[in-house]
Nucleic acid binder design. Structure first.
Length: 577
DNA sequence: AGAGAGACCGCGACAGCACC
DNA sequence: GGTGCTGTCGCGGTCTCTCT
């Protein structure tokens, strides 16, 4: 039975299962929260869950885990690649066997590129990584068989080695000569019109993101992976390969606290002045056999979902035995494959304004696995705000509205659509609310799920910051009802904010820090807007200003004397009001 | 010219897991 | 259950851009 009562409980946040963490992705969803919503709003008798912006596929995986059928849609082929390979089962035996074969073929050739000399034991051993500063080799990090882990300045041996690699043809460094056709991506970090990616700094092409050594090491490894005969195994190893290409790039800063590994920590193609050049073979070993590697991910998948099956049509999905999923690489607004009134529950995490440029960021992985054909259209059509592409928030809103119009039509009547949000900007949240509500959905409520714990720093700011997730819950009505909305005026909004905040304080019965007020405001604000047939049509970044404006008249900010609360500044109702 | 908003990036915290 | 390893995330000082 579909449960019509709302979710109220606070679901503690948790990390992701290893099947999801194998491949980095931007904006991954909270697995536990998704589970709770799927359990709450659907039944495990083969009901269909749809995620129209499926990204890395966490929603699809969780739906299958809970015995539902799932449809995942994404405009980006890299998202579909990640989802498909996350949910593809491969036996452990096949993974290990193939890994050993690859090891025998290319390990020595690749490792030799990173050779360094250990003064302690006198041996030539492969370094785990080198660091580069100001375009020069800086230090080397290796594990000496006698002396353990070492971080030392590079020597002439290392510089000579690198120059030799750069000045020789590729083949002279590898034992297997002549037969190999090495390829690496050289795609520009520019749109087809010639403008630079919004999220790009100094580098211009994909190959600029790598040292020459890492470029040829990756090319060699990729060439070997492409030779795997069985297509499912080949795809899985390609997936493992894709999961390391960013770690082999120059966008991996050196951090003293972590001398032997790094990660791509910025959501951009950024220039890092002091970066790591990691040993590609060792990265590959981790990507396949490591604790976040392919082997572990497939073990986890097998435990979590038994007999998983991907189908190729909606008809097959209906007829399939559980658990099955259907992936569609398409723009949701152009989608014709799914009939109207056919889906039982929609849960999705749409793109938030301009905060993450998915198309640009997934481009790196798409380039290496060579699935960028027609990608210009993806960059143009993705629902995102991007000033370099002349897509402002008005266009973002228009694209969102078209998407939700389609989403509305696919959902069965009297069924639910949950839209998740963890963006701090009320204006973006408001655009989303407006887009959804104007397609005909009934607004049920906003549920705020706080994070597992607030960061220590945020506790000491009077204004605080917004954290955690909002879940907006909408329902498709039995019959269309025409609602006419009128814009709220800024005076009305001001009055409401004061009123809602006071009510929150009265209900709590004690002074609260700003961020708790802000987090609790949304559910009331949107309920009230909806009930009054009002829309917020201007940029509502005035909440803080409004509250600041009434310090002394409506509110007072007091020093914290409550021992149990770690916050320094608390808000309360002014004595004068 | 100054203010405000947003992007950037280094730092440090955090969480899951392996190993002891 | 403590410790180390690894990838991820959030904060906030600082820089940059835009608007008035």
């Amino acid at each position: 039975m579909t449960n019509s009562s709302p979710i109220e409980k606070v679901v503690p946040s948790q990390g992701h299962s290893s099947m999801y963490v194998m491949h980095k992705f931007f904006g991954r969803k909270q697995e536990r929260l998704i589970q709770e919503y799927i359990k709450h709003y659907t039944h495990d008798s083969g009901e269909i869950v749809l995620d129209p912006f499926c990204g890395s596929g966490v929603t699809i995986g969780e739906a299958l885990h809970l015995g539902r059928k799932a449809i995942g849609i994404d405009i980006n082929p890299v998202s579909i690649f990640v989802t498909r390979n996350t949910l593809r089962y491969i036996s452990h035996m096949r993974i290990v066997k193939e890994f050993r074969a690859i090891e025998a073929d290319v390990k020595n050739d690749i490792s030799n590129l990173y050779s360094t000399n250990c003064p302690k034991c006198g041996n030539i051993i492969p370094a785990t990584c080198f660091s580069w500063q100001d375009s020069k080799l800086f230090d080397r990090r290796y594990v000496c068989p006698q002396d353990g882990k070492k971080v030392e300045k590079v020597q002439s041996f290392d510089r000579d080695r690198y120059n030799e690699i750069q000045n020789h043809s590729i083949d002279s460094f590898f034992n297997s000569k002549g037969l190999l056709n090495y390829w690496f991506p050289e795609n520009p970090l520019y749109y087809s019109g010639g403008k630079a990616f919004l999220k790009k700094e100094r580098y211009d092409n994909i190959d600029d993101l790598y040292t020459y050594r890492n470029l040829i090491a990756l090319a060699k490894l990729l060439d070997r992976i492409k030779k795997i005969c069985e297509s499912d195994l080949r795809e899985s190893f390609l997936f493992a390969f894709s999961s390391l290409v960013h770690l082999a790039s120059k966008m991996t800063p050196v951090r003293p606290s972590r001398p032997f590994s790094s990660s791509w920590i910025q959501p951009s193609y950024w220039y890092c002045p002091h970066y790591m050049e990691s040993n590609v073979w060792q990265l590959f070993e981790r990507a396949v056999m490591g604790k976040q590697g392919l082997y572990r991910a497939k073990k986890d998948l097998k435990l979590k979902i038994k007999h998983i099956k991907e189908v190729n049509s909606i008809e097959e999905l209906h007829e399939a035995t559980l658990p099955s999923f259907f992936l569609i690489n398409s723009n949701i607004t152009q989608l014709e494959l799914i009939p109207q009134n056919s889906v039982d529950f929609i849960i999705t995490d749409p793109p938030y304004g301009h905060s993450i440029q998915y198309g640009e960021l997934l481009y790196l992985w798409g380039a290496w696995i060579n699935i960028l054909e027609g990608y210009d259209d993806i960059l143009r059509n993705e629902i995102i705000a991007n000033s370099r592409q002349n897509k402002d928030l008005a266009i973002y809103e228009q694209l969102l509205r078209q998407a939700f119009h389609k989403i509305y039509s696919i959902l069965k009547r009297e069924k639910y659509c949950t839209v998740t949000f963890h963006n701090p900007s009320l204006s973006i949240r408001n655009i989303l609310y407006r887009s959804v509500i104007q397609t005909g959905f009934l607004f049920e409520r906003v549920v705020y799920h706080p994070p597992a714990r607030a960061s220590a720093k945020s506790l000491f700011q009077p204004e605080g910051s917004q954290q955690g997730d909002y879940f907006f819950i909408f329902k498709k009505p039995l019959k269309e009802e025409k609602r006419i909305y009128r814009p709220i005026t800024s005076e009305e909004l001001e009055e409401w904010i004061i009123d809602i905040v006071k009510n929150i304080l009265i209900a709590e019965g004690k002074p609260l820090p700003y961020n708790q007020l802000q987090n609790q405001l949304d559910p009331f604000l949107y309920k009230k807007l909806y009930e009054s047939n009002l829309l917020l049509t201007f940029n509502p970044n005035e909440v803080k200003k409004t509250m600041m404006k009434f310090i002394g008249t409506e509110f007072s900010v007091i020093d914290n004397t409550y021992k149990e609360s770690p916050y320094e500044k608390l808000w309360w109702i002014s004595n004068d009001s």
